[in-house]
Design a protein around this nucleic acid. Sequence first.
DNA 1: ACCTGAACACCGTTCAAGT
DNA 2: ACCTGAACACCGTTCAAGT
Lengths: 218, 218
Amino acid sequence: MPASAPENSKRPRRARGSINPADIIAGAFDYCRTTPVDDMTMPQLAASLDVGVTSIYWYFKSKRELLDAMTEEALSSFYESMPPLRRQGWEDMLREFFVNFYSLLAADPLKCDLIVRRIGGHDDGEMRTWERAEELLAALTDAGFPPSLAQHAFFTLSIYTQGFLLVERTGRVATAISVPSADIPGNPPPEDFAFGISNIIAGLRFMLPQGQERTDAA
Amino acid sequence: MPASAPENSKRPRRARGSINPADIIAGAFDYCRTTPVDDMTMPQLAASLDVGVTSIYWYFKSKRELLDAMTEEALSSFYESMPPLRRQGWEDMLREFFVNFYSLLAADPLKCDLIVRRIGGHDDGEMRTWERAEELLAALTDAGFPPSLAQHAFFTLSIYTQGFLLVERTGRVATAISVPSADIPGNPPPEDFAFGISNIIAGLRFMLPQGQERTDAA
DNA sequence: ACCTGAACACCGTTCAAGT
DNA sequence: ACCTGAACACCGTTCAAGT
């Protein structure tokens, strides 16, 4: 075989300005549709972007920093995809909110990994604001919740939801009850999730200052 | 410098039988008192054990398999270190159980990482039995819980506890409420954990078939 | 049977260019 | 200013011995 033509697979050099952080992040999300984030590799990501590995490092100091940016992106997307609140009794409102919370992340392993499972946030003091959460808290105080109880309620339900997602994802239930649940084949289905939510809501009903119940705002 | 003496730092070859899986696991736990499990490295572990790297592979086919064994060990140790149940009302019994659950793992980041945060169990169908959990469930049915409600209760509280541990460990609260909690400086303290537990227990009280309350078995 | 160094393919990151 | 290959230290794992 004569070496006359440069048939070698040397990728042509890209023009300057042909990549930017947004492209890289988008490419990373795309790449992770195939490979779990835990297995994401800088060289492989670069290849899938058709860029030199080192180019990524021009925009992100480290893999860690890229993952932080991806987490940020996942959070924004998650916040935005939360359906708007519907006016109804506070119990149903809470239930709907956290079922949406759960469903959105259960359906998207990547977002779940980034948001729920990944360790070490940014800590840049810049707190994300979650509009939907603010609305929900406002609705709770409207329904008679003292603000601190509303916050605690939100926190408890959020922790539970994240715990459920984690346990589903890790496939381990550090509970291992030997009672055979013959009726339920797979691991905890959404039905079990709903039970916990109902349980917590029932407790909140109990903790609400009496006679404050308001089922509708019509 | 004459090369007369073999002053080189060639570790002498170890006798056969001088290592075994238990030693390796123990060494790994020891090594992880210094380095987070996520950063554990086979060469580094081998060095800390004063063994050739390859020797570890004689007993464990892969790093993954070693981590599985460590998880198994962590679970056993965790189960055994759970204090015995004390006879009291079911509410206090539940509270005490899960506060112990939380405290044990919150105090031991390694166990927490292995048991709560690590992905992918063994799936060898061999379910661990957790004696303490069985006792607790029995106590609940004694107190008037239908068995399925007792299981659900246990599951919900366990999920919540693991979620709390996870959120504490990842340092992210995917809840980001902007209301400044001026009174609480650090991240969610045990006080917040206790609130959620009380919340769930209150809900269970509500769900219990009425008139079944039994505060003591004296 | 059990322990081992050398070697392999690969990773994250840096460096010293190229344009 | 932005893109790049080569190089570095290191990782998980395998191989072909040593004893």
